[in-house]
Protein backbone atom coordinates (compact mmCIF):
# COMPACT_ATOMS: atom_id res chain seq x y z
CA UNK A 1 0.00 0.00 0.00
CA UNK A 2 2.80 2.40 1.00
CA UNK A 3 4.76 1.34 -2.08
CA UNK A 4 1.73 2.06 -4.29
CA UNK A 5 1.29 5.48 -2.67
CA UNK A 6 4.99 6.17 -3.22
CA UNK A 7 4.71 5.24 -6.90
CA UNK A 8 1.62 7.49 -7.20
CA UNK A 9 3.43 10.36 -5.53
CA UNK A 10 6.50 9.90 -7.75
CA UNK A 11 4.34 9.85 -10.89
CA UNK A 12 2.52 12.98 -9.73
CA UNK A 13 5.84 14.71 -9.09
CA UNK A 14 7.23 13.62 -12.43
CA UNK A 15 4.28 15.01 -14.33
CA UNK A 16 3.52 17.98 -12.09
CA UNK A 17 4.42 20.56 -14.79
CA UNK A 18 2.27 18.79 -17.38
CA UNK A 19 -0.64 18.56 -14.95
CA UNK A 20 -0.26 22.26 -14.11
CA UNK A 21 -0.24 23.09 -17.83
CA UNK A 22 -3.37 21.03 -18.50
CA UNK A 23 -5.21 22.68 -15.61
CA UNK A 24 -4.13 26.13 -16.85
CA UNK A 25 -5.27 25.37 -20.41
CA UNK A 26 -8.61 24.02 -19.21
CA UNK A 27 -9.29 27.10 -17.09
CA UNK A 28 -8.30 29.49 -19.90
CA UNK A 29 -10.45 27.59 -22.42
CA UNK A 30 -13.48 28.21 -20.24
CA UNK A 31 -12.60 31.85 -19.61
CA UNK A 32 -11.99 32.94 -23.21
CA UNK A 33 -13.09 31.34 -26.46
CA UNK A 34 -10.07 32.85 -28.28
CA UNK A 35 -7.64 30.68 -26.33
CA UNK A 36 -8.24 27.18 -27.64
CA UNK A 37 -7.71 27.85 -31.34
CA UNK A 38 -5.01 26.63 -33.72
CA UNK A 39 -3.89 30.17 -34.55
CA UNK A 40 -3.49 31.06 -30.91
CA UNK A 41 -1.62 27.82 -30.25
CA UNK A 42 0.87 28.61 -33.02
CA UNK A 43 1.13 32.16 -31.76
CA UNK A 44 2.03 30.93 -28.26
CA UNK A 45 4.58 28.48 -29.68
CA UNK A 46 6.18 31.22 -31.79
CA UNK A 47 6.41 33.46 -28.75
CA UNK A 48 7.97 30.88 -26.47
CA UNK A 49 10.48 29.56 -29.02
CA UNK A 50 13.15 32.07 -27.99
CA UNK A 51 12.64 31.37 -24.30
CA UNK A 52 12.88 27.63 -24.96
CA UNK A 53 16.26 28.11 -26.69
CA UNK A 54 17.63 30.22 -23.85
CA UNK A 55 16.05 28.16 -21.09
CA UNK A 56 17.46 24.93 -22.54
CA UNK A 57 20.98 26.29 -22.16
CA UNK A 58 20.08 27.61 -18.74
CA UNK A 59 18.86 24.13 -17.71
CA UNK A 60 22.25 22.60 -18.43
CA UNK A 61 23.92 25.34 -16.40
CA UNK A 62 21.49 25.02 -13.50
CA UNK A 63 22.00 21.23 -13.56
CA UNK A 64 25.68 21.91 -12.77
CA UNK A 65 24.46 24.10 -9.87
CA UNK A 66 25.34 27.27 -11.77
CA UNK A 67 23.35 30.20 -13.10
CA UNK A 68 23.70 32.52 -16.09
CA UNK A 69 22.33 36.04 -15.76
CA UNK A 70 23.95 37.26 -18.96
CA UNK A 71 21.79 35.45 -21.54
CA UNK A 72 19.58 38.48 -22.28
CA UNK A 73 22.56 40.73 -23.01
CA UNK A 74 24.38 37.98 -24.92
CA UNK A 75 21.21 37.56 -27.00
CA UNK A 76 21.18 41.28 -27.84
CA UNK A 77 24.90 41.44 -28.68
CA UNK A 78 24.87 38.32 -30.84
CA UNK A 79 21.73 39.46 -32.68
CA UNK A 80 23.46 42.77 -33.41
CA UNK A 81 26.71 41.05 -34.45
CA UNK A 82 24.80 38.75 -36.81
CA UNK A 83 23.05 41.58 -38.63
CA UNK A 84 26.21 43.68 -38.49
CA UNK A 85 28.11 40.94 -40.31
CA UNK A 86 25.25 40.42 -42.75
CA UNK A 87 24.83 44.08 -43.62
CA UNK A 88 28.28 45.58 -43.17
CA UNK A 89 30.72 42.66 -43.29
CA UNK A 90 34.21 43.22 -41.91
CA UNK A 91 36.54 45.85 -43.31
CA UNK A 92 40.31 45.37 -43.26
CA UNK A 93 41.69 48.71 -44.47
CA UNK A 94 45.34 47.60 -44.16
CA UNK A 95 44.86 44.98 -46.86
CA UNK A 96 42.18 46.89 -48.82
CA UNK A 97 40.00 43.89 -48.08
CA UNK A 98 36.29 43.61 -47.47
CA UNK A 99 35.03 40.35 -45.99
CA UNK A 100 31.34 39.95 -46.77
CA UNK A 101 29.13 37.40 -45.01
CA UNK A 102 26.36 35.32 -46.50
CA UNK A 103 23.29 34.58 -44.38
CA UNK A 104 24.87 31.30 -43.28
CA UNK A 105 28.15 33.06 -42.46
CA UNK A 106 26.43 35.77 -40.44
CA UNK A 107 24.44 33.20 -38.46
CA UNK A 108 27.58 31.16 -37.76
CA UNK A 109 29.35 34.37 -36.76
CA UNK A 110 26.55 35.22 -34.30
CA UNK A 111 26.59 31.71 -32.84
CA UNK A 112 30.37 31.81 -32.48
CA UNK A 113 30.09 35.16 -30.71
CA UNK A 114 27.60 33.61 -28.23
CA UNK A 115 29.82 30.57 -27.76
CA UNK A 116 32.84 32.78 -26.99
CA UNK A 117 30.91 34.94 -24.52
CA UNK A 118 29.67 31.78 -22.79
CA UNK A 119 33.20 30.37 -22.83
CA UNK A 120 34.41 33.54 -21.13
CA UNK A 121 31.75 33.09 -18.42
CA UNK A 122 32.83 29.48 -17.89
CA UNK A 123 36.50 30.42 -17.89
CA UNK A 124 35.99 33.14 -15.24
CA UNK A 125 33.93 30.76 -13.09
CA UNK A 126 36.27 27.79 -13.25
CA UNK A 127 39.75 29.33 -13.49
CA UNK A 128 39.27 32.28 -11.15
CA UNK A 129 36.63 30.74 -8.88
CA UNK A 130 34.27 33.66 -9.47
CA UNK A 131 30.75 32.70 -8.33
CA UNK A 132 28.53 32.11 -11.41
CA UNK A 133 26.10 34.78 -10.19
CA UNK A 134 28.84 37.43 -10.15
CA UNK A 135 30.68 36.35 -13.31
CA UNK A 136 27.52 36.29 -15.41
CA UNK A 137 26.23 39.51 -13.82
CA UNK A 138 29.44 41.15 -15.01
CA UNK A 139 28.94 39.67 -18.47
CA UNK A 140 25.36 41.00 -18.45
CA UNK A 141 26.72 44.54 -18.19
CA UNK A 142 29.71 43.99 -20.48
CA UNK A 143 27.63 42.46 -23.29
CA UNK A 144 24.96 45.17 -23.02
CA UNK A 145 27.67 47.82 -23.18
CA UNK A 146 29.22 46.22 -26.25
CA UNK A 147 25.77 46.05 -27.86
CA UNK A 148 25.31 49.78 -27.34
CA UNK A 149 28.79 50.46 -28.71
CA UNK A 150 28.28 48.20 -31.72
CA UNK A 151 24.86 49.61 -32.63
CA UNK A 152 25.70 53.15 -31.46
CA UNK A 153 22.44 52.93 -29.52
CA UNK A 154 20.32 52.78 -32.68
CA UNK A 155 18.36 49.82 -34.06
CA UNK A 156 19.67 48.26 -37.27
CA UNK A 157 16.72 47.39 -39.47
CA UNK A 158 15.67 46.21 -42.96
CA UNK A 159 17.58 42.96 -42.97
CA UNK A 160 16.03 41.32 -45.99
CA UNK A 161 13.36 38.70 -46.56
CA UNK A 162 15.69 35.72 -46.24
CA UNK A 163 16.76 36.75 -42.76
CA UNK A 164 13.22 37.72 -41.72
CA UNK A 165 12.07 34.20 -42.70
CA UNK A 166 13.97 32.81 -39.68
CA UNK A 167 11.74 34.80 -37.34
CA UNK A 168 8.43 35.05 -39.12
CA UNK A 169 8.39 32.31 -41.76
CA UNK A 170 6.65 28.93 -41.57
CA UNK A 171 7.55 25.44 -42.75
CA UNK A 172 4.79 22.82 -43.09
CA UNK A 173 2.46 25.22 -41.32
CA UNK A 174 4.68 25.46 -38.25
CA UNK A 175 6.59 28.70 -37.53
CA UNK A 176 10.35 28.42 -38.21
CA UNK A 177 11.30 29.51 -34.66
CA UNK A 178 9.31 26.53 -33.35
CA UNK A 179 11.29 24.14 -35.59
CA UNK A 180 14.53 25.68 -34.35
CA UNK A 181 13.44 25.39 -30.71
CA UNK A 182 12.41 21.76 -31.31
CA UNK A 183 15.84 20.92 -32.75
CA UNK A 184 17.54 22.63 -29.81
CA UNK A 185 15.45 20.67 -27.32
CA UNK A 186 16.10 17.34 -29.04
CA UNK A 187 19.81 18.07 -29.14
CA UNK A 188 19.86 18.98 -25.45
CA UNK A 189 17.82 15.91 -24.54
CA UNK A 190 20.27 13.77 -26.50
CA UNK A 191 23.23 15.38 -24.74
CA UNK A 192 21.76 15.01 -21.25
CA UNK A 193 20.40 11.49 -21.68
CA UNK A 194 22.63 9.74 -24.18
CA UNK A 195 26.13 11.13 -23.80
CA UNK A 196 28.94 11.04 -21.27
CA UNK A 197 28.79 14.82 -21.12
CA UNK A 198 25.16 14.59 -19.94
CA UNK A 199 26.06 12.19 -17.16
CA UNK A 200 28.94 14.45 -16.12
CA UNK A 201 26.59 17.45 -15.95
CA UNK A 202 24.25 15.64 -13.57
CA UNK A 203 27.18 14.27 -11.57
CA UNK A 204 28.73 17.73 -11.10
CA UNK A 205 25.40 19.22 -10.02
CA UNK A 206 24.69 16.31 -7.66
CA UNK A 207 28.03 16.38 -5.88
CA UNK A 208 30.88 18.33 -7.41
CA UNK A 209 33.49 16.98 -5.03
CA UNK A 210 32.51 13.38 -5.71
CA UNK A 211 32.49 14.06 -9.46
CA UNK A 212 35.98 15.52 -9.23
CA UNK A 213 37.26 12.55 -7.26
CA UNK A 214 35.79 10.16 -9.81
CA UNK A 215 37.97 11.74 -12.49
CA UNK A 216 35.58 14.09 -14.26
CA UNK A 217 37.28 17.17 -15.70
CA UNK A 218 34.89 19.57 -14.02
CA UNK A 219 36.33 22.75 -15.51
CA UNK A 220 36.08 21.43 -19.05
CA UNK A 221 32.48 20.30 -18.59
CA UNK A 222 31.44 23.60 -17.02
CA UNK A 223 33.15 25.71 -19.69
CA UNK A 224 31.48 23.61 -22.40
CA UNK A 225 28.08 24.00 -20.74
CA UNK A 226 28.40 27.79 -20.40
CA UNK A 227 29.66 28.03 -24.00
CA UNK A 228 26.73 25.94 -25.23
CA UNK A 229 24.29 28.13 -23.30
CA UNK A 230 25.93 31.22 -24.81
CA UNK A 231 25.49 29.82 -28.31
CA UNK A 232 21.82 29.07 -27.56
CA UNK A 233 21.32 32.63 -26.29
CA UNK A 234 22.88 33.79 -29.57
CA UNK A 235 20.44 31.59 -31.46
CA UNK A 236 17.62 33.23 -29.49
CA UNK A 237 19.09 36.59 -30.48
CA UNK A 238 19.08 35.67 -34.15
CA UNK A 239 15.41 34.60 -33.93
CA UNK A 240 14.39 37.78 -32.08
CA UNK A 241 16.28 39.98 -34.54
CA UNK A 242 14.79 38.18 -37.53
CA UNK A 243 11.30 38.39 -36.06
CA UNK A 244 11.57 42.14 -35.47
CA UNK A 245 13.51 42.61 -38.73
CA UNK A 246 15.68 44.82 -36.60
CA UNK A 247 18.55 44.48 -34.12
CA UNK A 248 17.46 46.45 -31.09
CA UNK A 249 20.19 47.58 -28.67
CA UNK A 250 17.84 46.93 -25.75
CA UNK A 251 16.64 43.52 -26.96
CA UNK A 252 16.52 40.67 -24.47
CA UNK A 253 16.09 42.83 -21.39
CA UNK A 254 15.18 40.54 -18.45
CA UNK A 255 14.96 37.47 -20.72
CA UNK A 256 17.23 35.73 -18.21
CA UNK A 257 14.43 35.93 -15.67
CA UNK A 258 11.96 34.23 -18.00
CA UNK A 259 14.54 31.54 -18.75
CA UNK A 260 15.27 30.92 -15.06
CA UNK A 261 11.52 30.90 -14.38
CA UNK A 262 11.00 28.23 -17.07
CA UNK A 263 13.78 26.12 -15.57
CA UNK A 264 12.40 26.44 -12.04
CA UNK A 265 8.76 25.87 -12.98
CA UNK A 266 9.94 22.88 -15.00
CA UNK A 267 11.20 21.29 -11.82
CA UNK A 268 14.97 21.66 -12.20
CA UNK A 269 16.54 22.13 -8.80
CA UNK A 270 18.50 25.37 -8.40
CA UNK A 271 20.99 23.45 -6.28
CA UNK A 272 21.83 21.30 -9.31
CA UNK A 273 21.80 17.63 -10.24
CA UNK A 274 18.03 17.24 -10.63
CA UNK A 275 15.77 18.19 -13.48
CA UNK A 276 15.34 17.75 -17.21
CA UNK A 277 15.15 19.63 -20.47
CA UNK A 278 11.58 18.38 -21.01
CA UNK A 279 10.62 19.91 -17.67
CA UNK A 280 12.04 23.23 -18.80
CA UNK A 281 10.06 23.02 -22.04
CA UNK A 282 6.93 22.51 -19.92
CA UNK A 283 7.95 25.48 -17.77
CA UNK A 284 8.42 27.68 -20.83
CA UNK A 285 5.05 26.57 -22.23
CA UNK A 286 3.37 27.31 -18.88
CA UNK A 287 4.85 30.83 -18.83
CA UNK A 288 3.88 31.36 -22.48
CA UNK A 289 0.32 30.12 -21.96
CA UNK A 290 0.00 32.19 -18.80
CA UNK A 291 1.19 35.35 -20.60
CA UNK A 292 -1.10 34.64 -23.54
CA UNK A 293 -4.09 33.89 -21.33
CA UNK A 294 -3.62 37.05 -19.29
CA UNK A 295 -3.41 39.14 -22.48
CA UNK A 296 -6.55 37.49 -23.90
CA UNK A 297 -8.34 38.17 -20.63
CA UNK A 298 -7.32 41.85 -20.87
CA UNK A 299 -5.46 41.74 -17.57
CA UNK A 300 -3.32 44.82 -17.00
CA UNK A 301 0.39 44.27 -17.84
CA UNK A 302 1.24 45.30 -14.28
CA UNK A 303 -0.95 42.55 -12.87
CA UNK A 304 0.53 40.11 -15.38
CA UNK A 305 3.94 40.59 -13.79
CA UNK A 306 2.49 40.04 -10.32
CA UNK A 307 0.76 36.83 -11.42
CA UNK A 308 3.88 35.53 -13.17
CA UNK A 309 6.00 36.18 -10.09
CA UNK A 310 3.41 34.43 -7.94
CA UNK A 311 3.46 31.34 -10.17
CA UNK A 312 7.27 31.15 -10.01
CA UNK A 313 7.17 31.43 -6.22
CA UNK A 314 4.50 28.74 -6.02
CA UNK A 315 6.57 26.44 -8.25
CA UNK A 316 9.63 26.83 -6.03
CA UNK A 317 7.58 26.25 -2.86
CA UNK A 318 6.08 23.03 -4.33
CA UNK A 319 9.55 21.92 -5.44
CA UNK A 320 11.05 22.56 -2.00
CA UNK A 321 8.15 20.79 -0.28
CA UNK A 322 8.74 17.81 -2.57
CA UNK A 323 12.46 17.81 -1.72
CA UNK A 324 11.68 17.85 2.01
CA UNK A 325 9.27 14.91 1.60
CA UNK A 326 11.97 12.96 -0.26
Amino acid sequence: MIAQLKIGSDTLKRFQSLIALLILCTILSFMTDKFFTADNGLNVLRQIAVNICIATGMTLIVLTAGIDLSVGSVLALCGAVTVGLLRNGVEIPAGDLFVGFTLLGAILGGLLCGWLLGWFNGFAITKFNVPPFVATLAMLTIARGFTMLYTKGHPISNLGKEFAFIGSGSFLGIPVPVWIAAIVVLLAVFITQKTKMGRYIYAIGGNEQAAKLSGININRVKITVYSFAGALAALGGIIVTARLDSAQPNAGMSYELDAIAAVVIGGTSLSGGKGSVWGTVMGAVIIGVLNNGLVLLNVSPFWQQVVKGGVILLAVIIDKAGERRD
Partner: peptide, 15 residues
Protein backbone atom coordinates in the same frame (compact mmCIF):
# COMPACT_ATOMS: atom_id res chain seq x y z
CA UNK B 1 32.95 24.01 -47.04
CA UNK B 2 31.19 26.04 -44.34
CA UNK B 3 33.73 28.85 -44.69
CA UNK B 4 33.38 28.79 -48.49
CA UNK B 5 29.60 29.10 -48.16
CA UNK B 6 29.86 31.73 -45.43
CA UNK B 7 32.18 34.47 -46.60
CA UNK B 8 33.24 36.25 -49.76
CA UNK B 9 35.99 38.74 -50.41
CA UNK B 10 36.07 42.04 -52.27
CA UNK B 11 38.34 45.03 -52.55
CA UNK B 12 37.46 47.46 -49.77
CA UNK B 13 38.04 50.49 -52.02
CA UNK B 14 35.44 49.20 -54.50
CA UNK B 15 32.87 48.54 -51.78
Amino acid sequence: LLAYKSVYFKKLSEV
